[in-house]
Amino acid sequence: MGLVVLIGVLSMAALAVRAHTLPRLAAAGSEPAFRVLRSGRASVGVIAAFLLGVASLGLYTYLLPMAEARGLADWGFALVWAWGIGGVTGSALVGKPLDRYGAKPLLLLLPVLLALSFAAVWLFTSPIVWLIAAAVWGGTGWASVPTLQQALTADRRRQSMPIIALQMAAMYLGSAAGAAIGSSLLTAGAGAADLAAWALLPALLALVLTAWIAFAGPRRPTASASTSEDRTATL
């Protein structure tokens, strides 16, 4: 952990020293980043990212204690790999469905599958069920990241940088908050096996928000609209 911190500090110092040589996009410097939150759609998307971070990454912190509490301690290594492989697979495969169908169906499907994976590890003790649930958990958690990005930036290309930056910051802040909440629950006497049930709450709240984005937000811009926007940005 000390080595990770050291590398991070050195990287930040290098970026600070060489900041003047890094390319800047006009849109990034034209207005404060937080101004994009004046859009209800962007604000709701950032909150949804936070809740998904609380649920998915926050609960992942306790995957091994949860498995041990269910009598699956010997499966811990396999479960971690299943979660990781699921995450990589979800991130790699979500692009084509996004391009073909847009973000709307995935904004509904991914949080539902995430919640179902939590329900599975809460209700069942079968290692096969846990392995499948862990893969789905990792896949849906990570696939939700580009899905939200496309949903929030499809009609706001010039503001995509601050929107994505705030979304990712919210997700990792949610991860830290989820880990802290899990620790507090365990300290208060909750069983590790029941943490998945607690994670259902932010997952279902995220589903409500992503459903609002899917149904209340604007449709994907047409090709002509995108071309017009790109021309305006260039001017």
Score class of each variant (00 low, 15 high):
Q167R: 14
L6Q: 14
A216F: 06
L57Q: 05
T147S: 01
D74L: 11
A193T: 08
A169K: 03
M168G: 14
A188F: 01
T187N: 15
V145P: 02
Q159S: 11
K104H: 13
A134D: 10
T21H: 13
I128P: 06
Y172G: 13
G84C: 13
I163R: 06
A165E: 06
P218A: 08
S184E: 10
A192I: 09
G86K: 00
P65F: 05
S184R: 15
L148N: 00
V208P: 01
L108I: 05
M171G: 13
S30K: 15
R35S: 12
A193V: 12
A192M: 09
L116A: 09
E229P: 09
Q159P: 07
Y101A: 07
G76A: 08
T147Q: 01
L109F: 06
T153A: 11
R70S: 08
G76F: 04
I181C: 05
G87H: 02
L64A: 15
T147Y: 12
V88S: 05
L3H: 12
L185P: 12
A119Y: 00
S126V: 09
L59S: 12
L93N: 02
A115D: 03
S228I: 10
F124D: 11
G86M: 06
G45A: 08
A192Y: 02
Y62E: 01
A13H: 12
G138I: 11
T147I: 05
L59W: 14
L64N: 15
A49P: 04
Q149V: 10
R156T: 11
A190C: 06
P162D: 03
L10M: 09
Q149Y: 12
Q150M: 07
E68I: 09
T89L: 12
D155F: 12
A115Q: 07
A192F: 07
L116T: 10
A48H: 06
Y62C: 08
V36M: 07
T232Q: 15
S56K: 07
F50C: 05
